[in-house]
Write a protein that binds this DNA or RNA. Structure first.
Length: 466
RNA sequence: GGUCCCUUCGUCUAUCGGUUAGGACACAUGGUUUUCAUCCAUGAAAGAGGGGUUCGAUUCCCCUAGGGACCGCCA
């Protein structure tokens, strides 16, 4: 058995969206499961649209989600000569021919086909014409001589046997009239040269596969296996595109989605293993297979992403969570001041309890991170004379407490409930507003302990409360 | 329009001819609770339609309908 090799081959012409990330993930997982290799190939032969910043974004995205390529990135534009060499070989052995049609001529044919509502397919005009009839001063394109008769069966590892009439595949261009190779040529040559054994890619490539298979066959190369995975759809049911909102990884990381959670979500989108929902990285490598990939497209569902993230927030190691949080704050919010870090870390057990995202934890922990309380304009109105008395009464008794814990604080609160003839809310709410600026938030004892004695006393004597 | 693909709760899915069609998210209700949450329990919720094949079809085949992808000298 040949060693399994997969690849992910994006073109750096736009930001990588999560459909691409999932394709990369599946390729990577498959290769790791088979103890094979996974390569990253940058298909940058469209010089006009390829941008370095997109390439960097792609590399960064894959790294973020945990997909690592073996070896260096393969830069397609550096291999153009290999592609041209193959084109010439195909030309020499009769599998390709020169086409002298001008682009205007082709364009006209397409228009005509559109008007007549018949499918456009290149009319193979130059397939059998003699070179001597070629117009002068006209540079030809090189077209692949596709099969006209019979049919081809693609044994797709996800979709099963897919049969197509050969005459529906046109004589596609492999070399432009400027001599540069086109996608189908470059991709097949590279896949062959890289010894790719399994090509796992989006369903939208299926027609290309039939073209590329013909190149393989004409060159007498050993065919790789193909697996076409269903596309990810938007909630409207259309193919996800770069223009769609919330389609890049950054769109998710900036709202505080963690990479492990998104990886797990993407893994389960279109793939399943029994009833298992949560997969560690190692488990996903261990269980991933092509049989588990479904045949129908799946829609993106934000609430599932959120709940997956919530699961990870509540279950991962707290040190790890803290690191993720500090990194997140640094990147997208404001860096947590060093004197607040320890307080935040200790408070994570309850801060994370009501969070679906890192952003939620940031918001929940805001009261610890700030030096001065930001009062909610509506909530501060709840501080009436009665509340003020509760606050100052509490402060008096609190000043005698040395060790902060629920056990030492609860008696004080209970006393105040009695002496002020109120209920827990009558005490808890004013204190919460005084300490955090909002009537919503963590439990009052958690707040007090997280802030520390000095900070609590400082906040309880805030002039805005008197 | 042509070619190809798809179709189980709202969503992601399990089922590989015999199940009260299972799980998860979301939703609803109840309980716990000091606010907001968490947590726990319960509930509602699906085989697109029609033909076959079979003792028996969600499962296999065909047709219809609906949805999607592709149809570049882009990748």
């Amino acid at each position: 058995m040949k060693k399994v090799a997969t690849r992910f081959a994006p073109s750096p012409t736009g930001p990588l969206h999560i459909g691409g990330v999932r394709t990369a993930l599946f390729n990577w997982l498959y290769s790791k499961n088979k103890k094979g290799s996974f390569y990253l190939r940058i298909e940058d032969t469209d010089k006009e649209r390829s941008k370095d910043k997109y390439k960097e974004q792609i590399v960064k995205s894959l790294k973020w989600i945990g997909v690592e390529n073996d070896g260096d990135e393969y830069i397609q534009s550096k291999k153009i000569n290999d592609h041209i060499k193959v084109a010439n070989e195909l030309l020499k052995n009769g599998h390709a021919y020169k086409c002298y049609c001008s682009s205007d001529e082709i364009e006209e044919q397409k228009q005509r086909a559109k008007q007549k509502k018949i499918p456009y397919i290149y009319d193979r005009k130059w397939r059998n014409k003699n070179e001597s009839e070629a117009p002068k001063d006209s540079k030809p394109t090189i077209r692949f001589k596709s099969k006209i008769n019979g049919n081809t069966i693609l044994k797709d590892l996800v979709q099963g046997d897919v049969q197509i009439d050969n005459n529906t595949i046109e004589d596609f261009i492999i070399l432009r009239n400027d001599g540069s190779p086109t996608y189908n040529l470059s991709a097949s040559v590279d896949d062959h040269l890289m010894n790719i054994t399994h090509i796992i890619r989006g369903d939208d490539h299926k027609i290309n596969t039939f073209k590329q298979m013909q190149i393989y066959i004409a060159m007498k190369w050993e065919l790789p296996s193909f697996a076409h995975i269903p596309l990810i759809h938007t909630t409207e049911g259309k193919k996800l595109s770069k223009r769609d909102k919330a389609s890049t990884l950054d769109d998710y990381s900036k709202i505080g989605i963690m990479s492990d959670a998104l990886r797990n979500y993407l893994l389960r989108l279109g793939w399943s293993y029994k009833d298992k929902e949560i997969f560690t990285l190692n488990e996903s490598i261990k269980y991933f297979n092509l049989e588990g990939i479904g045949k129908s497209p799946s829609k993106l569902d934000m609430s599932r992403i959120l709940s997956m993230n919530e699961h990870y927030i509540k279950n991962i190691d707290e040190n790890h969570l803290f690191n993720q949080l500090t990194e997140y704050c640094k990147l997208y919010k404001s860096e947590i001041k060093s004197d607040k870090k320890e307080k935040i870390k200790k408070s994570l057990p309850f801060l994370k309890n009501k969070a679906k995202t890192l952003e939620d934890i940031f918001n929940n922990g805001q009261y610890i991170m700030v030096d001065n309380v930001n009062f909610n304009q509506e909530d501060i109105k709840l501080i009436d004379d009665k509340a003020k008395k509760v606050i100052s009464d509490f402060n008096t008794k609190f000043s005698h407490v040395n060790k902060l814990s629920k056990e030492t604080l609860e008696p004080i609160v209970n006393e105040l409930i009695k002496s002020n003839d109120t209920n827990f809310k009558g005490v808890g709410q004013p204190l919460r507003i005084a300490l955090t600026g909002s009537k919503f938030g963590p439990g009052i004892y958690d707040i007090i302990i997280s802030l520390g004695k000095d900070e609590v006393r400082k906040r309880l004597t805030n002039k805005k409360l008197s």
